[in-house]
Nucleic acid binder design. Structure first.
Lengths: 190, 190
DNA sequence: CGCGACGTTGATTTGCCTCAACGATTGTGG
DNA sequence: CCACAATCGTTGAGGCAAATCAACGTCGCG
């Protein structure tokens, strides 16, 4: 199975060979090309997704008919529309590959079955979710304490390799800026 | 023990009498008066807090030396600085009661011991954290799709009882508005 | 009563957006 | 292998939502 995935779980809980084998039953690996959709607005988000390799983005269409990116997912990140996933409500989001990507997916029923058979995975997911909450807290803090200019600079210096990897207008959208303004900022800040 | 807390856990997992008794060993109830601090900037956030009754706010001091509220916690909500809690790093936040409050707290060591003795609680916490992630996703979406005016109106219509309960300037801070602007909005919108 | 906490009002300023037009680069079908 | 269209980024003029600043009203409470 996917060694990166195993390694990731193993960072948080003990894994034996049998567990890995059982896990295998429930996890579905899929390879996507660039710009393929894993979820479209109106659909119920039936799975959570783990990025083994590649990059996903999550976005919605706002009132001005433009794409508003709310999240990226890189290697070793989970992504989903959790409201849609938990309550079986139609999603207002799209999830799409930014580049060719290897994804592991697990749907709600498989997840429940897996957790019943491997209750130790509850702990893994609890820790993952807790870290996601911590990340959200940090993001909210930055939004409130930094100006848009500072926010952009902070992002670029924090994730220089990522900024290379995705188009500028996606960074702009994620940070809540217009592409034009980002252009202005780049000129100003060398 | 605190029936609201038991009821809350019971919404997500099965609880027997023995489990409740064990839980009791690890949970520490404290009653706070209005405006007391559970956490101050620079301290390590050693516990997670469950609000049985009352209201907490979490905030930091920004560059302009004003309080910036990032979260509220009402009845049946958990709150903590999870980065500080998980990694034992000094917090940049304050957590303070908005009104007289009954709080249950559990520190990191007790939590680990409790989860070892009651592994079924991993599931409860996993679900709670998952819901917190979903709530964060929703909040980020609102921030991006609504103007400040729309955001304020949306908040007031979504939580009318809450708006009565806390001072206006705290709502303003939480939403990222100035008190002056909120004042203007209230006049305009009846 | 008097002070501090909270809310309001109006004048002024500004950070960032909007709109429109124009390069540069990429990729794709003929 | 070129033509032509998308796609992506840049530039500049003009506008507006929301902040800032300063001053004043009001209420509750010690």
């Amino acid at each position: 199975m996917h060694p990166n995935f195993i390694k990731h779980i193993n960072k948080y809980i003990e894994l034996d060979d049998n567990t890995i084998e059982v896990l295998n039953k429930y996890i579905k690996p899929i390879t996507y090309k660039k710009k393929e959709f894993l979820l479209k607005e109106g659909q119920i988000c039936r799975s959570i997704y783990f990025v083994v390799k590649g990059c996903l983005r999550m976005f919605f269409i706002n009132d001005k008919r433009t794409e508003q990116i709310t999240q990226f997912a890189l290697e070793n990140w989970w992504i989903s529309d959790f409201f849609s996933f938990m309550d079986n409500k139609p999603s207002e989001y799209f999830i799409q590959t930014v580049e060719k990507s290897e994804i592991l997916s697990i749907d709600a029923l498989s997840l429940e079955a897996m957790l019943k058979e491997l209750p130790q995975m509850e702990r893994y997911l609890r820790i993952i979710m807790q870290r996601a909450v911590a990340a959200s807290q940090l993001r909210i803090k930055y939004v409130h304490q930094l100006s848009k200019e500072e926010f952009y600079i902070h992002f670029c210096t924090s994730f220089p390799e990522f900024v290379q990897r995705v188009p500028q207008y996606m960074i702009a959208s994620y940070l809540g800026l217009t592409p034009e303004y980002v252009s202005e900022l780049r000129k100003k800040n060398l």
